[in-house]
Design a binder for these strands. Structure first.
Ligand code: MN
Ligand code: MN
Ligand code: MN
Ligand code: MN
Lengths: 221, 221
DNA sequence: AAAATTTGTTAGTTATAGCTAACTTATTAA
DNA sequence: TTAATAAGTTAGCTATAACTAACAAATTTT
């Protein structure tokens, strides 16, 4: 495959691509934390190798080949995260930084073995879907908690992002994936919610939190 | 730590250092599979960072700091190999190439966790000692099978090298680590041996093989 | 429509890590 | 002890991947 840096660009491009709006040099530069000139340079090289299409001043478009390559890197990342949590006993807040490095390891047998030992998991520890071996990423249909109504009962299925501090916060609240959450009320002023889940009753969740909790409705109170 | 390339140089230097003769630019170049000029260049940089001492035309000498850093990389390599074999079900012939990449992963918690899950193993799957967390490498006292005599009974404790083809050969002979080997006779002409071990009786081992099987005497026939 | 701002490109620089070719120093053989 | 060979260094080149500074194109505001 490509270099570590190119692989990280492909991954970033894949994520921007999912947001189905045109991918700009500026945006890619922000995600990659490099200057725009560096992006222009790299994008030219990636285009030469057929990972994407690029014309001066035009949006960047991933090719089929580029999308598949990116999905397979993300597969390695997410399989690793799941392996670290389910087979090695790491917390979900510890695994991203390790996976960020492991995703560049070139060893089909390593990731095939992880997949086998876990019986082909479909989601990573943060609820993100794991692309299949052919590079297909199944779409999920989860919605942010703040899009549901009073008296809805939902399951927490995924997190919109998985920053360390956010995961630590959820740990402190003992809020885990697949937990059932009942929405008692929504404060109209600041959109904060009063919810119950597990052993916790009538907990307040700010809108900042609830907007990052991706859920699925399963019933009413 | 240093770059991946620098880490590989340190590892190579550590191995050459074990052979307690002066380390030359030429030799290091051979091990690293780079030209001598590339070595001179890199050695200058490593010296600047204090990993080794270097003066023009003089042998290269690792510093204490360099030796410790190298040992800790080797620790990561060998812990990984052992983890892959004992916890993931890989064969001892499959793990070196993966460990060669994993040894560069910067994550103390990952390797601490492996260590913990395996109860601090002292040897890797090929019988090489695993340096301790403080960078100490315990010396082993194993000798090649061809240095023992007729009627000696020995244990196979380590391999001198672990090339894929050699390991496959041992697999085909069902010869495993910690196996008890009885030496029935030694052919004076080519130093080949007739030995028994496990379910196998009176197997012929060429000198090429026996010189790479590191053993420890445990008795007589 | 002109001005201001944002977006994107180009040119030139740096660091890393390799290479070849030419040269120098050290060692070994004649 | 000279000549040949081996070992090691230097200078200059390449590729990757970042950077800054200057500029050009596109878009937005006035
Ligand atoms: Mn992650
Ligand atoms: Mn990465
Ligand atoms: Mn190894
Ligand atoms: Mn390595």
């Amino acid at each position: 495959m490509a270099s570590q840096s190119k692989e990280n660009y492909l991954k970033a491009l894949f994520h921007l691509d999912q947001k189905d709006k045109a991918i700009s040099v500026t945006e890619l530069g922000k995600v990659m934390e490099v200057k725009k000139s560096s992006v222009t340079n790299m994008v030219k090289k990636l285009a030469e190798s057929g990972w994407l299409k690029y014309e001066k001043y035009q949006p960047i478009r991933l090719t089929k080949k580029g999308r598949k390559a990116a999905a397979l890197i993300i597969r390695k990342h997410r399989l690793t995260e799941m392996f670290l949590v389910t087979k090695m006993g790491f917390g979900w807040e510890e695994v991203h930084d390790i996976a960020e490095q492991m995703e560049h390891i070139d060893s089909p047998i390593l990731f095939d073995k992880m997949d086998e030992l876990m019986d082909s998991p479909r989601f990573d520890p943060h609820g993100s879907p794991i692309p299949s071996k052919d590079g297909t990423l199944h779409a999920t249909h989860f919605y942010p908690l703040d899009s549901f109504k009073q008296n809805d009962i939902v399951l927490l299925k995924a997190l919109r992002h998985s920053e360390h501090t956010f995961l630590e916060y959820l740990n402190s609240k003992e809020l885990k994936l697949h937990e059932q959450i009942a929405i008692h009320s929504i404060e109209p002023f600041d959109k904060s919610m009063i919810v119950s889940y597990g052993k916790h009753t009538h907990v307040v969740l700010s809108a900042t939190i609830s907007t990052n909790l991706m859920c699925e409705k399963v019933g009413d109170i």
